[in-house]
């Protein structure tokens, strides 16, 4: 555990809590892609199956359980409790275009051809693209509320900090997880355009982030 990894995990947690509280307090999930949230719930589910097979640390177990609970609670708010506010017309990204290639790739490129390893690999690949329905939705509607932008900022920070974590671990331990690193770089690249918009529009602007 190093400072980059810990800050990355905390940013990830903050992002998930920001989104949950935004929906809970405003009693609305307007502007939020339910599809991205289902994909994230699927990411956590397929990645954390090792909760049942191997114990790593109390920190590891607690964080996994918290991520899972928050992910499913958020999905519950969007599709059940506040489903009237869900904008399914704008959330029109075709997730099968992500799921099929990601599933195929996880069978082809993995560390071991076992069910748990393939599901772990699937979750790593899927996480790298799971935010795309949300970014697509913002592009389609042309704007995002600033709180949604803060959510995306913390998710992006989490990714960037994990890159720093991997650089640190490579230098100090010689640790290098190729699948996680390559997917992580891809995932972080998706946030670069958003980072630019965030700093030029949300921080200087009026509260809403509109796209050109």
């Amino acid at each position: 555990m190093n400072i980059f990894r810990l800050s990355g995990d905390v940013c990830h947690l903050i992002a998930i809590i920001i989104l949950f509280l935004k929906i809970w307090r405003s009693k609305s999930c307007a502007g939020i892609s339910g599809k991205s949230q289902v994909l994230f719930a699927l990411v956590f589910t397929t990645r954390y199956l090792d909760l049942f097979t191997s114990y790593i640390s109390a920190y590891n177990t607690v964080m996994k359980v918290v991520y899972l609970l928050l992910a499913y609670s958020t999905v519950g708010l969007i599709f059940f409790r506040f489903r009237n506010s869900y904008d399914s017309e704008s959330d029109s990204f075709r997730v099968e275009f992500l799921l099929v290639p990601v599933a195929g790739l996880s069978f082809l490129e993995n560390y071991a051809f076992t069910p748990l390893e393939i599901l772990w690999t699937f979750s790593i690949y899927l996480e790298s693209v799971a935010i795309l329905p949300q970014l697509f939705m913002i592009t389609k509607t042309g704007e995002a509320e600033s709180i949604t932008a803060h959510y995306l900022l913390f998710l992006g920070l989490y990714r960037a900090l994990y890159l720093a974590n991997w650089l640190w671990r490579f230098h100090t331990e010689g640790f290098y997880d190729q699948i996680a690193v390559v997917s992580g770089v891809v995932q972080t690249i998706f946030y670069c355009d958003f980072f630019y918009l965030y700093f030029t529009r949300v921080l200087r602007g009026s509260g809403k982030m509109s796209l050109p």
């Binding site: 090792d50 790593i56 640390s57 590891n60 560390y111 390893e117």
Partner: peptide
Amino acid sequence: DEDVLQKDEL
């Protein structure tokens, strides 16, 4: 081996 498959990162 065990080490490769043990995932400590979230």
